[in-house]
Design a protein around this nucleic acid. Structure first.
Length: 466
RNA sequence: GGAGCCAUCGCCAAGCGGUAAGGCCGCAGCCUGCAAAGCUGCUAUCCCCGGUUCAAAUCCGGGUGGCUCCUCCA
């Protein structure tokens, strides 16, 4: 398995800390609002990573956190009058539901900041003891970036210059402009704070990940986990800071490899809350089936930026349709063993830093080739079994193609409509039988107007929602 | 102002020094009562200019254009 390490900026062979085991930690969402397509892409990227590693025989332990302490959450509490738990619980459930619709598997460990306060507190204490952190007069604790000689190694930022142009506001009590909060002391009339040995307050954003990783994973003297992942926007400052905290507190590096997924863009611009161009996953799921969204969002290599648009989504859907049409042709059959070369080629493609484009092209070629073979030899049972097995393997590795194929083409059609369609098709068959093609074509036109396309096959007429 | 990334057919997208995968769209054909579906065939020398090399879309330098990070962010 080759993975691209965004710190070394090169593809590296994956050599896990423990043989045949891979530990992965991915930065999850801050749960104060609905997930957008960017969250989906990140989840999908690391889902693909985890599936690929499992297919290669690794035992994968995936951790993904929920940031449930945050200024934006507090703001929402103030705005809505709801409790923090109500808000975060609501969005966590939504997140998990929506990701499930995309076929994203649950993480093995799903820590929350609120459940990790002891670990957070412990790590901050250790940083203070070791002289890597300092407390200001109001009780805030900052990480002293000047004490960490490796600060900047993750994001490759030059640390010496004065950052006069930095957009970060200077806080008087900060010793260096790059220092960041480990602990934010409670202000006068704030009611959301946690009582700890550090006083009343709440953790800074970065410390929770370091603390949770330390709490839930153990590696060796050199590294805690194998792979740390997240969106490319987290590289700095979030991951730089996480790495610094962990390095200084524990004496070993946080992760051996760092992987970052590219952005989802709308009209060429990064989708973000501040630009107001977020496309919420819940809205996308209203318009498109989760499996199609999954296929589409995963169809571009995870490191590239992804420009979301409907035409491309439709093109992706057509590609998935073809796989399901092949599945329709072989459907009542049960699988045996997938084609060896196909299976190997697919795994090889994914083993090369998740080269999904090559994997999808292999699937396209498999579909065309098997369709041709079926054209030539429609009754070949062994072939059918192999095809089904191929598709099962695709579903396992990439997470699509698992539905019952007739159902796939009928998503969104209710029972009454379905009956009407089948009635019209029956009428058309009658007309065809007596060669009343004017009538049969009129019925077909009617169906097309309803958004239904039909195909006459040797086994009768089948229909699809267009 | 500082730091990066990217630029391949009308569109999406692989490629990682050895002579341009795949998909969508389009065209032609086979199949069909006609369609649809499926199959077959056809369609690019890689933003520009230099350089390195026997060989460059791939490496180096310089342009141009787009995007991102340095502020919450997946």
């Amino acid at each position: 398995m080759l993975i691209y390490d965004s710190v070394q900026k090169t593809k590296l062979p994956l050599v896990p800390i423990k043989e045949r085991e891979v530990s992965i930690y991915v930065c999850g969402p801050t749960v104060y609002d609905d997930a957008h397509l960017g969250h989906a892409r990140s989840a999908l990227s690391f889902d693909l990573l985890s599936r690929t590693l499992k297919a290669l025989g690794y035992k994968v332990t995936l951790g993904k956190n929920f940031t449930d302490i945050d200024d934006k959450i507090i703001k929402k509490v103030e705005e809505t009058g709801k409790s923090m738990q109500e808000i975060t619980g609501f969005y966590i459930d939504r997140y998990l539901e929506e990701m499930a619709a995309l076929g994203v598997g649950r993480a093995d460990i799903e820590p929350k900041a609120t459940q990790s306060l002891e670990a957070i507190e412990g790590m901050i204490q250790k940083l203070i003891e070791k002289g890597f952190a300092y407390q200001t007069s109001n009780g805030d604790v900052y990480f002293d970036t000047s004490k960490d000689t490796h600060y900047g190694d993750i994001s490759h930022r030059v640390g010496n210059e004065e950052e006069s142009q930095s957009r970060v506001a200077h806080t008087e009590e900060k010793r260096n402009s790059k220092d960041f909060a480990l602990w934010k002391a409670c202000k006068e009339n704030e009611d959301i704070c946690f009582d700890t040995r550090l006083g009343k307050g709440r953790p800074g954003w970065h410390i929770e990940c370091s603390a949770m990783i330390e709490k839930h994973f153990c590696g060796n003297d050199k590294y805690t986990i194998d792979i740390h992942g997240g969106g490319a926007d987290l590289l700095f400052p979030h991951h730089e800071n996480e790495a610094a905290q962990s390095r200084c507190a524990t004496g070993h590096e946080l992760a051996k490899y760092w992987m970052h997924n590219g952005f989802v863009k709308i009209d060429g611009e990064k989708m973000s809350k501040s630009l107001g161009n977020s496309f919420f996953l819940k809205d996308a799921l209203k318009a498109y089936d989760g499996e199609i969204l999954r296929y589409y969002l995963n169809s571009v290599h995870y490191r590239n930026d992804f420009n979301f648009n409907e035409e491309d989504l439709l093109a992706a859907k057509k590609r998935l349709d073809k796989l399901y049409r092949l599945k329709k042709r072989v459907t009542p059959t049960t699988g045996s063993v997938a084609n060896k070369e196909f299976k190997k080629a697919l795994i090889d493609a994914m083993s090369d830093d998740l080269n999904i484009s090559v994997a999808l092209s292999l699937i396209d070629q498999m579909v065309a080739q098997n369709n041709e073979q079926l054209d030539l030899d429609p009754k070949n049972k062994g072939l059918k079994k192999e095809i089904i097995a191929n598709i099962e393997f695709i579903d396992d590795l990439l997470g699509f193609g698992g539905k019952e194929p007739f159902a796939y083409f009928q998503i969104g059609i209710d029972e009454t409509l379905k009956q009407k369609i089948e009635q019209l098709i029956a009428q058309r068959s009658e007309a065809k039988k007596i060669k009343d093609f004017i009538r049969s074509d009129a019925i077909r036109d009617e169906l097309i107007a309803m958004g239904i396309s039909i195909m006459d096959t040797a086994d009768g007429t089948v229909w699809e929602k267009a």
